[in-house]
């Protein structure tokens, strides 16, 4: 119980710190919004081809931007944030207090999930108000579950990469070199990807997450949509692998 109270407070401090940090909050909020507007203006009202289907552009752009938002507020943010804090000695200092490492990292993860949810609301609002994206209200719980699980998995992967990053200066490069190829291979930036690549990307963490989110916005599907457990399963397996690497290799002290 005490650990949960501590975790709750820790998320609060992380949230304050995040919102006051222009590099963290600015980039992870402004970039997705900017891309959403660009995508929306470019082909939001046109039909685009996904595999064999014709889809209204904005119905596909919103899940794309959601993936981008969640990854930005979790994976990228954790890689950079944890590496910088390790360099500054902040993690070492906290590790010297009686608080459990789970609470320290849990605060960062909790904040990542919270920021992902806030971004989801923001992206939906802009999508609905500016570009007329259609959201089925019955599907909102599924959307929230999908975002939370995806955010958790990408936090774990972020912690894993942070464990392998030598120092804070190298962190942005590490984060980008991992994530940018995945964005392109998974159809996050360019929707129509060759089938061969799509088949491989199915087993990487990003594309299944995009597909699980797209299911919520897929108008060809009738009625409520339950979470896409098949695709989410792949994402979660990656999350568990990331958590295992983070637990095994995470360093609290700067490299000397």
């Amino acid at each position: 119980m005490r650990e949960l109270t501590l975790l709750y407070r820790q998320v609060g401090y992380e949230r304050k710190s995040y919102f006051r940090n222009p590099a963290a909050a600015g980039f992870s909020f402004i970039f997705p919004v900017m891309f959403l507007v660009i995508f929306g203006v470019l082909y939001g009202s046109e039909n685009i081809t996904i595999g064999a289907k014709q889809v209204k552009g904005i119905q596909y752009s919103v899940p794309q931007i959601l993936v981008f938002s969640v990854v930005g507020t979790t994976f990228v943010s954790l890689v950079i944030n944890l590496s910088l804090r390790r360099d500054s000695g902040e993690l070492k200092r906290k590790r010297g207090t009686p608080v459990s490492p789970g609470v320290i990292l849990g605060g960062v993860v909790g904040n990542g999930v919270l920021m992902s949810l806030i971004m989801t609301v923001l992206v939906l609002l802009i999508g609905v108000l500016l570009f007329g994206v259609h959201v089925d209200l019955d599907r909102l719980p599924t959307l929230i579950v999908t975002v939370i699980l995806g955010a958790l998995a990408f936090c774990a992967l972020g912690a894993a990469v942070a464990a392998l990053v030598p120092n804070g200066d190298a962190a942005p490069a590490f984060a980008n070199i991992v994530i940018f190829p995945l964005y392109f291979l998974s159809g996050v930036f360019i929707p129509d990807i060759p089938k061969g690549i799509a088949n491989v990307a199915e087993f990487l963490p990003l594309r299944p997450f995009l597909q699980a989110l797209y299911r919520v916005f897929d108008l060809s599907r009738a009625g409520t949509a339950t979470p896409d457990w098949g695709h989410l399963g792949v994402v979660l397996v990656w999350g568990v692998a990331g958590a295992a690497i983070a637990i095994r290799f995470f360093r609290w002290t700067p490299r000397r």
Partner: peptide, 13 residues
């Protein structure tokens, strides 16, 4: 209590 050589405080709080 531990006071390290490096300061290590969240700069935004």
């Amino acid at each position: 209590g531990i006071v390290l050589q490096e300061c290590g405080i969240d700069r935004f709080l």
